[in-house]
Design a protein around this nucleic acid. Structure first.
Lengths: 249, 249
DNA sequence: TCTATATGTGCGATATACGCACAATCTGCA
DNA sequence: TGCAGATTGTGCGTATATCGCACATATAGA
């Protein structure tokens, strides 16, 4: 039974807008229809509406891509939550002290979604991620920490269904082992993930609120470096304490 | 005559989404209807669609606000244009060298729209702006530089119609004087705006492409400091040169 | 040049969305 | 505490916006 409180054309339009996930910068109409599971003609009309409203442009040929105007939605969110005023300066200060970029993230659907980050000059570990980037839930310290913050039933469901995106030889592929890592993060109030997303890189994460976490990454050597781990976690905990004080999260 | 290639319900939905501009973090249905110029019942259905799709949430009472999910649109744009990989590291490196945050912007409608920025530890001048923030066109060095990049007829139209948002005693309010500043920016390939947006702050901007500019701001003393101006412009020009080399803009 | 894929478009059908009007709720003030 | 004004919730009949189809055209790649 259709819900008359829902505008289905608008919902379809949002699916079309969501098809532009950045993995492929320019999309064809056919690809947009596929990604949004819509009839080709419907997808075409919705894309032309986005063009008309200035959120999408053509590349002159038959491809479509987002325009900067979509950043206004992010601006609305960030300004509304005062991220630029309360969160960014704290991340900047602690990232400088830690000598590593620090990111803030939330759980969104089955992904880690980056809310803010402080990048640094000459940072070794960047990966090109930005605000709005999504990261895997099961193979990042951020993701595991976010799962740890959720009620056990919610976490269990996500652990069973989130995509398995192991990309390194050391990445866990057994969901039960990942679940154990999440349990450990829940107990300890921190998470350390070694070479799960990228070989040679250890990720660290701590909570900053009921639904947000911060994290940083560092290159590691062959052995486990307890001292480096402790320093990274300490830096994050100091940062988290200050973020909690701002009340922004 | 209605254009059958445009889905008007989707266009209305985008207007509702755009009502959340961040100035007021939580909006009522009545306020959303006003801002989007829609019938109250229509606005309600469209907002409920956003709630259903996870882009908006209620505050438990009668207010609505954006969720982080809207950042995915920004992520799609930033990832598609490789901002995190090509632009951000360059901004970070040059901001560190300049000792001031550097932002990249485009013209969008009648606003300056921030595309990227490198913020710094202990930065004097932050204002809380973030990626996705909009700034006034007529009273920022970024805005005047963007106007300078446009064909003369386009610039003239914007100079005549963009909102006059003077907020300091020294801010120009005569559109002809502002136009002269834009002409000078066009000739010089750089723009310096003293105390136009904020008292005591000078803004600098240079172009990085046919439609993008970068800029930074510094506190200034009572007199004009030609040496500080030259250093800021030089830093921006070095940054712009490197950005042009990356081909990201 | 040919084939497969993609795109453009008009159209009839119908499902979606509209706006209205009335009821209910909430807020602020005296 | 009560009242007035503003806001919100909701059902409904109707109009129109949107749908998906089918055919034509264009493009890309082998």
């Amino acid at each position: 039974m259709q819900n008359r409180n829902i505008a289905s054309t608008f919902a379809k339009g949002l699916a079309v807008l969501g098809a532009f996930d950045g993995g492929t910068p320019v999309l064809s109409l056919a690809e947009i229809a596929r990604r949004s599971s819509l009839d080709r003609a419907a997808a075409r009309r919705l894309v032309l509406t986005l063009v008309d409203q200035g959120f999408v442009e053509t590349d002159g040929a038959r491809g479509y891509r987002l325009t900067p105007r979509v950043l206004r939605f992010a601006g609305g969110y960030l300004s509304g939550r005062q991220v630029g005023r309360l969160v960014q300066p704290v991340l900047d200060r602690h990232a400088a002290q830690a000598g590593a970029p620090i990111s803030m993230a939330v759980l969104d659907g089955q992904d880690v979604l980056l809310l803010a980050q402080s990048t640094l000059q000459n940072s070794v570990v960047t990966f090109g991620f930005t605000l709005g980037s999504t990261l895997p839930l099961l193979h990042t310290s951020l993701g595991r920490m976010l799962l740890a913050l959720r009620p056990a039933d919610v976490a269990a469901r996500l652990l069973a269904t989130a995509p398995m995106q192991a990309r390194t030889p050391e990445a866990l592929t057994d969901r039960r082992l990942i679940s154990a890592e999440v349990d450990q993060a829940r107990s300890a109030g921190l998470c350390i993930a070694r070479a799960q997303l990228e070989a040679g890189i250890t990720g660290y994460a701590v909570p900053t609120g009921p639904e947000t976490v911060i994290g940083l990454s560092r290159a590691h050597g062959l052995g486990r470096d307890a001292q480096a781990d402790q320093a990274a976690i300490k830096a994050l905990q100091l940062c988290a304490a200050e973020l909690i004080q701002t009340g922004a999260v």
